[in-house]
Simulated assay, not measured.
Amino acid sequence: MNPLDPVCPCGSGNPLGHCCGPYHAGTAAPSAEHLMRSRYSAYVLGLVDYLVATTLPAQQSALDRAAMAAWSAQSTWLGLEVEGSELFGGQPEHAQVCFVARWHDAQGEHSHRERSAFVQVDGRWYFLDPTVPLKAGRNDPCPCGSRQKFKKCCAGYLS
């Protein structure tokens, strides 16, 4: 392995420059799974701006950047296992990715299993953060910009 292009933290075994690195540099991830892997790598690498930019734009201002940066910096990242992904299609496309992330911090070793939801808007995938409430009623336009009612678009993926 080239020391100038280390192995990507996402667990693919590929060099960072040929895996998540291009997404961190601005190339759109081609799938929800690629985006999820690149977000894990961003936590490992301390790329908080990338984490914010790849969260649904309507949720970005409510993210706690300082907490994200602290968690990233104060953790030793131990690995990522993608258990599966499911593409639901539709307009806009939605997907879910099930994964297990492991890390170590001052409190010990941790493992977190999650089924994350994603939506594709204008050719880019975004993470739907379930910890950041969307200010939309069921019959309001969806915050993802699809022009559909929230209940017919992203609402079902956030529960």
Rank of each mutant, 00 (worst) to 15 (best):
S31Q: 09
L63M: 15
V44M: 05
A70G: 05
T131F: 02
A53K: 10
D49F: 02
F118G: 04
G26S: 10
G46K: 11
Q96I: 03
R102H: 10
S75L: 06
L35D: 01
P57V: 08
D105K: 13
P22E: 12
E83I: 08
Y40W: 12
V44I: 10
L87K: 04
W125N: 03
F118D: 06
L78D: 13
L51Y: 00
S85I: 04
H112C: 07
A70F: 07
Y23A: 01
C98A: 13
G26V: 02
H24K: 08
T54M: 11
Q91Y: 14
A29Y: 00
T54P: 06
Q107I: 05
A117C: 07
E33D: 09
A136F: 00
Q91K: 11
H34C: 09
V52D: 00
S72N: 13
D122N: 15
S31W: 02
Q74E: 15
H104I: 04
W125Y: 14
Q120R: 15
Q60F: 00
E114N: 14
H24W: 03
L45R: 11
A66K: 12
Q74H: 13
W125K: 07
P30G: 14
L47Q: 08
A28D: 14
V97G: 01
M36G: 04
L128C: 06
E109T: 11
Q120V: 09
A28H: 12
D105T: 10
D49K: 03
A29L: 00
A67G: 07
E83C: 08
T27D: 13
A42D: 10
A73F: 03
Y43E: 02
W125H: 07
S111M: 12
L134Q: 00
L56N: 01
H24D: 04
E33A: 05
A69R: 02
H112I: 11
S72K: 11
S41C: 10
L80V: 11
V48K: 00
E81K: 15
V48S: 02
W103T: 05
G26D: 10
Y126G: 01
A29K: 00
Q96R: 15
A117H: 02
V52H: 01
F99Q: 03
V82H: 07
G89A: 08
L51E: 00
F88V: 06
G21T: 06
A32H: 01
S116D: 06
Y50D: 03
G84W: 14
R37A: 04
L78C: 15
S61H: 14
H112F: 09
D105C: 09
S85G: 12
F88R: 09
V100Y: 04
V121D: 00
V97S: 03
S75G: 10
L63K: 11
